[in-house]
Write a protein that binds this DNA or RNA. Structure first.
Lengths: 231, 231
DNA sequence: GTCTATATGACGATAGAC
DNA sequence: GTCTATCGTCATATAGAC
């Protein structure tokens, strides 16, 4: 476990390139399955090779080390989460209501994390000794954060935040909420599905809290009802 | 790694009993140190024995298995956190102001978690494959939750919650916030101290959110200011 | 690219002498 | 209670034949 760089591609035809890509995908799939059963730190190259149907040394044709395989899982997880969030945002369109917008965002990210708990633990926690993501593997995570920031800037431009809000601080607080829901659900009731999880179902309450502080105060309707009456 | 039960105490004088207790304490101390360096899942009995100055088999005189040692770390962590919280509550006395009360509570728990990050990861996350706390080890954690619940009931009795609040739901939401702050701080900036952590310093903001939803609405002063103007 | 064979070493846990 | 000796298993990683 000394090198972490990915193996350089061998030269060859596009067919060979494509075949290699598929094999790598399969190995990563199997690696996630093994991590799901044995914990993120319980990944074993021997077990991966056994399930893929090759011998352990053959894995080194595709991954330079065990950490390189972790990197692949880490990077693919962030890329998938990023794609999922992009799809959700595309469906939502321009933000018009803060509560709706944030509820969808929280549900999307926490649902993905619960459904992909193994990858999520590697991404959100630091459970594996001696594994630190390589810069290449980090890239999709950085893109994810940048995209979230752009999204929050749109929310601000739409006038949905309280005037004067620090967008970066608002984003940081937001990550506290989503990671708190995920962490509590995973650590205390990992087998509950998203729909009925004792913490995932608290998302509306969490969003309500967030909007109360960061949202633009509602212009009081006749009668002066405050948001406090929304429940 | 088959049995998880603790070794029964051998009969003997009180002196032998005391000596044994000290040895166990030392082993747990060293185990935490090893986990701090190698990650929670990187605990090695050989390394522990080496540092304690005995051979590996001698560890089995005090702990029936590796998981039993994890149990000791887990239980001692919760007991320490429980003691720390009790001390903080004793100093606070009866709750009179919700914001003050919760800020102190959050700061106490998160500060302890950041200062004892290794134990806290074992307690709040599930980083170790094949380790599930034994019921005995869970006992202090259960006591901690019960104590927190009693504390929240006092807060309700003092009229600091919004009328009609579900105390258990309020408690669950509260744990989401504290674990979110801890998780984000540990996963993203583990070396920042509590005082200047980019997430620990967000505790006042998090409490503000919580109070906005669960706190008793301020009786509007002359002019009808809502809590939204508190910032 | 895949294989056999192997280097090299950790690990947790047990048996039994002292 | 501590030790030596050892079991059995598994791991990551490399060398070199095919």
């Amino acid at each position: 476990m000394t090198t972490t760089a990915a193996r350089p591609l061998p030269r060859g035809t596009d067919r060979r390139h494509e075949r290699r890509r598929q094999t790598i995908e399969e190995i990563v799939d199997v690696a996630v399955a093994v991590m799901r059963e044995n914990g993120a730190a319980g990944l074993s190259l021997g077990e991966v090779a056994r399930r893929v149907g090759i011998r352990t040394p053959s894995l080194y044709v595709y991954f330079a080390s065990k950490n390189a395989l972790y990197d692949a899982v880490f990077a693919r997880g962030w890329q998938q989460l990023l794609d999922t969030m992009d799809a959700a945002r595309a469906e939502l369109g321009q933000p018009t209501d803060l509560t709706d917008y944030l509820t969808t965002a929280a549900e999307t990210i926490v649902r993905w994390a619960v459904d992909n708990a193994t990858s999520a633990q590697l991404m959100f926690w630091r459970p594996v000794p001696d594994y630190e993501p390589a810069p290449d593997a980090y890239a999709p995570a950085v893109r994810m954060l940048e995209r979230s920031r752009e999204s929050f800037l749109q929310v601000e431009a739409a006038g949905l935040f309280r005037p004067g809000v620090d967008v970066d601080e608002a984003l940081r607080t937001w990550t506290v909420l989503t990671s708190g829901v995920f962490t509590q659900q995973m650590a205390n009731a990992p087998h509950e599905p998203f729909e009925t999880g004792r913490f995932t179902t608290a998302i509306p309450r969490v969003v309500e809290m967030y909007v109360a502080v960061y949202g633009r105060p509602a212009t009081p309707a006749r009668g002066g009802r405050s948001h406090a009456d929304q429940r």
